[in-house]
């Protein structure tokens, strides 16, 4: 006998307030934004079904599932490699239920699991984004080693994250378990403070 739907709450509600922090100056060295409007579904190929699964994804969305740590697709729908024969489908402002859409096209070829609520996704960009991220992440983010489209699952300040690069600004997106959102933000804000960090409205 319930009526109104429940209000969604961001994992960062009350933890990350928009505004400028750290060193003052004209432009912030790092800009941090919580991503909203995302749907995330994990996809794992059934045993021996990698080839038909890739064909099905190509047929449905024109995307070649990456077989190396890459993100393929566009802002609307992208597939992020997350392990051998495993991907995250990440959609922004997808009309309807992403899991259902995937299931309609891929059913039986892969196992699908809704993960959209299990992650907090931060967008981190700016001229000092690399310097700040290097204070917690051990992977090489130098442009010679990590480029737009590249993906890595690694640790950031003891927190498991998946990171991918969107452009050469550079802009990164970093996904972590929802429960760790507060510690993740405490770290990235502390690591960015010397460059000046701007927290922008979620979007």
């Amino acid at each position: 006998m319930s009526d109104t739907a429940l209000a969604a709450r961001s994992p960062l509600a009350g933890l990350l307030r928009p505004g400028r922090q750290g060193a003052r100056g004209d432009l912030p060295g790092v800009v941090v934004q919580e991503r909203t409007g995302l749907q995330i579904v994990s996809l794992a190929a059934r045993k021996g079904q990698e080839v038909p699964l890739m064909a099905a994804v190509r047929a449905a969305w024109g995307i070649d599932l990456p077989t190396t740590p890459r993100r393929v697709g566009d802002a609307r729908l992208a597939f992020v490699w997350s392990g051998p024969s495993q991907w995250l489908a990440v959609a922004t402002d997808w009309p309807g239920d992403l899991e259902a859409a995937l299931r309609a096209h891929l059913g039986g070829l892969g196992s699908l699991t809704d993960q959209g609520d299990g992650r907090v996704v931060l967008r981190v960009r700016g001229p000092h984004a690399r310097d700040a991220l290097a204070k917690g992440m051990a992977i090489d983010l130098h442009p010679r080693a990590f480029q737009p489209g590249d993906v890595a699952a690694t640790l950031a300040a003891h927190i498991g994250v998946q990171i991918w690069q969107l452009d050469e600004a550079p802009t990164y997106e970093m996904a972590a378990f929802r429960s760790t959102a507060g510690s993740l933000c405490d770290w990235i804000v502390a690591a960015s403070a010397e460059y000046g960090v701007e927290i922008v409205e979620p979007g």
């Binding site: 190396t68 740590p69 051990a138 992977i139 890595a152 699952a153 690694t154």
Partner: peptide, 10 residues
Amino acid sequence: PFCGPRGSEE
């Protein structure tokens, strides 16, 4: 073999 070289802490 999938992710590239990483420190043992991972």
